[in-house]
Design a protein around this nucleic acid. Sequence first.
RNA 1: GGGCGCGUAGCUCAGGUGGAUAGAGCAUCAGCCUUCUAAGCUGAGGGUCGCUGGUUCGAGUCCAGCCGCGCCUACCA
Length: 649
Amino acid sequence: MFHVLEKRISEAVSARIAALYGIEFAVQTEQPKQASFGEVAIAAAFQLARQLKKAPKAIAVEVADGFTVDGVSSIEIAGNGYLNVRLDRGSYAWGLIAGEAQAGAHGAGKIIVEHTNINPNKAAHIGHLRNAILGDTFVRMLRATGETVEVQNYIDNTGVQVADVVIGFRRLENKSAENVRDLITSTRFDYLCWDVYTRISAYYQDHKEDAAEWRRETLHAIEADEGADAEIGHLVADAIVDAHLQTMLRLGIEYDVLPRESEILHLQFWASAFEQLKQRQAIYFETEGKNKGCWVMPGAAFRDDPQGEEDSKVIVRSNGTVTYVGKDIAYQLWKFGLLGKDFYYRKWYEYPDGHPLWASTDQPQANDLHFGGGSRVYNVIDSRQSYLQDVVVAGLRALGYAEQADRSVHFSYEMVALSPRTCVELGIELSEEDKRRPYVEVSGRKGLGVKADDLIDKLIENALIEVTSRHPEEAAEARKRVASEIAVGALRYFMLKFTRNSLIAFDFSEALSFEGETGPYVQYAAVRARNILRKLEERGEKIPDFRAALPLEALARQLNSNEDCWQLLLAASKSDSAIERAVASGEPSHAARYAFQLAQAFSNFYHEFPVISETNPEKKTFLLWMTEYFRAQLERTLAVLGIEVPEYM
RNA sequence: GGGCGCGUAGCUCAGGUGGAUAGAGCAUCAGCCUUCUAAGCUGAGGGUCGCUGGUUCGAGUCCAGCCGCGCCUACCA
């Protein structure tokens, strides 16, 4: 609603300026610093001052003189040339009641968002949670603005990390495929693999030659899909993928398709990409120097001022195998439908809500499913991989796909590290050097990190204590469900409140907090809004039909006589523009912060206006509508963040 | 060395395309529960926006140079 009006105002002022001065000027609207200045501010007079050789104030006077816009009650000149716009409150509110929201139909093509992408060789940790929560929230934001989105979770089931766990089971633990199969059903397998991976990594420290030899053998066996190594590789990767899916499902995160590395290999995706790269001369065969015998991409393709050979990137090794980046170029081509190939798909899992999850397969299937072929691609990958992402995009560009290269977005974010205090709580021994640092990097190899499920469990445990102390009379099952929703709300909000390039030094006490700027604070506001409406019905009163009960004049009367209500309503009506802005800037944190501000606004409303006990009938109806509107807006915004509203708190 | 990013209140962080008095949460202190749930609300204190220059009517925001910190810079993924 608000952004519709903003747009109308900026267009009208632009037209006005064109009529007055005969120039094209795209007027920007902004939010006034103070609420008392009005609802929309325009600084155009300052920007035009030089061009028109006039004082800003004089321009503002000319623009504002006799100028009106539909839905605007007044335009004032303030300061040295600001135009402050005041909305017609009654008609604004009436528009909200009548539901004049209408999301503009976006959707020129499918958007692909790839996130999570955890190596399927051990339990997920908090760093992975940031990736998945950022990605999932961005998907929800896009869908809220009307986009069609396909969610991909890439599974590297044939890489060294899986190989290392296979080696751990085979060489350190002496396990057969049959043993591993048993372990999958009888143990917390993703946790077991976490430990196996830590042990084999530690073993490599002292046995470098074994590492190289065993990895070569095992990777070869896995790629060829032969023997016990390959079998264990399948068992491990598939079981861990399932574990990750369950972990993410606890947070409400679902995927559409799992493109897997094994099919990229078996269906020769790389061979097709390799042909294209050679044909277009995006890569060349190096005949001398340190990269002799490799196919490399010259540094000039992805660097502004390459330092020479040092900067070229090996795509195919001298032994003929392709690097990760090479495979990623093939994968990226497929995402845009530029590879000329597709996977086959089999159903991997059906979510409790009925949503099917498909996974790639190399065997033809009865279905005729197709994925990929997006018009825009977001890769949610941490900022440490920006160099590799640059190379992938350079690959597209070198192949002549400039447009797709521009639409390949590295949705990067900084890592999640551990605060020193949290390390102490986890019983992790820190070196003197680490103790002086503000944070300690998570390391899967060292087993140094907080497992996702452990954190979620701990959050639920803490939430359950709070819930039980407040609502001892409620059924245990319901309390558990509420505690879980609060825990998820806390976790998702915590991961979203920071901007993407802010490094999170994970701290238990901070993450476990349910007060202040947290998910539960926002949930609490929504629960209280619902409570008011519920209490009313419990008293035998009915929620009025607001369209009939609140004519425009009544709305104008209420809003003009009460500044606080107007400000609160205004804030609540900005959810669409907040989400749009968050999408445009690629910052889910903006959406999270808006949710918090909205909750703050409602908390103020809650304390200032006793709704049910209000004796003036018109005012009571009006306050009820405000409550209902806040409830709807809070719930919509929380849904975009992937946070549920508990029955009670 | 090069690339990317960061430096704002005691702590953790926000600060659309430069604009009107730099914000929030936590922590601290002082208040508010016979009235829709105190996971809440009200108020107070707390700032050389790393430093120095520049651009201009105007800089936390843009530019340059410093200082400090982090990540990346593999024929690992």
